[in-house]
Amino acid sequence: MKFSLLLFLALATLSSAMPTPTTKDIKVFLCSDSTAAGYGPQTTGVQGFGYYLYPFFTSTFVNSAKGGRSTRSFINEGLWAQLLDQTSPGDYVVIEMGHNDPGTPGTGGDVGVDRAVLSGVGEETVLVRNSTGQDEVVRTFGSYLRQMVADSRVVGAVPVLSGMVPLMEWTDYDTTLQKTWEFTEYSRDVSKTENVLFLDHTAYSVARFQELGYTEAMKLFPNDNIHTNSLGAEINAESFVTSLLCSKGPDATDFKGTLNEEAARIGYDCLDAEYR
């Protein structure tokens, strides 16, 4: 009994003596795909927005985005486990996925790449034969997101869900950029059920490209309607930061505290609810 009391007092004293982590001690991780991945110097033809996020954080920013990955393949290839292994309690893990998740698992374009998931946020599954010749149970996008949220919390990290950057899909004779993307809406739905902060990155990027107009916006997509050049990546980075500055919900205030004065200098207004 005396030993237990002494041990308790010793641990309490040690705990009180330990320094409280500051925002500079906290790391921010980005789990995403090629739209966020870094491609080296900005002289390259294509660049992901994660390349330009570093200067906006007082915290250490870690870009773990990997080209061609979906929620399913990011987990199955061990990239997710590698990310979690680098985290410490109190770190933030931003999950922005969706570009590579669409498709029919086990068929068509998914053959050999093993990345398509089922649409939606339910508990539906399908059994497929993957590229390794093994049977694999594939789940919905929402199910994989819920796993990532739960895994983050197990290691003490704070999960954050983010809408994906938009494709350049224009309508009305190339005057209106599509605002709504189903995988962004799935992320939004999961954020509500799991009580997780949601960053409406999609809406803020759409607003920026819409302001530029079709002709100028398309100059920022040299190879296709998904991947930006360096200037387009900077716009997506600024829209990401703006979506965080304008966010409301669980952990929003604390997460904003990881940003520095450069974030405030972006100077873009928050969008009203009608736009989003």
Rank of each mutant, 00 (worst) to 15 (best):
F56D: 07
F56T: 07
N63Q: 06
S64G: 05
A65T: 10
T71N: 14
S73T: 15
F74L: 01
F74S: 08
N76R: 11
G78K: 05
G78D: 02
G78R: 04
L79A: 05
W80N: 02
W80V: 02
A81G: 03
Q82D: 15
L83M: 10
S88R: 12
G90H: 06
M97T: 05
N100I: 03
P102S: 11
P102G: 08
T104G: 05
T107E: 15
T107G: 02
T107A: 14
G109N: 13
D110T: 00
D110H: 00
V111I: 14
D114K: 00
R115Q: 04
A116Q: 03
L118A: 10
G120R: 11
G120S: 11
G120T: 07
G122Q: 09
G122S: 15
T125S: 13
L127N: 14
V128E: 11
R129D: 15
N130M: 05
T132D: 14
G133T: 10
Q134I: 00
D135T: 13
T140G: 07
F141Q: 07
F141P: 04
F141I: 00
F141M: 12
G142D: 06
V149A: 04
A150E: 12
A150Q: 14
D151C: 03
S152I: 07
R153M: 10
V154S: 07
G156Q: 09
V160R: 07
L161H: 05
S162V: 01
V165E: 03
P166N: 06
P166I: 06
L167C: 09
L167R: 15
M168N: 09
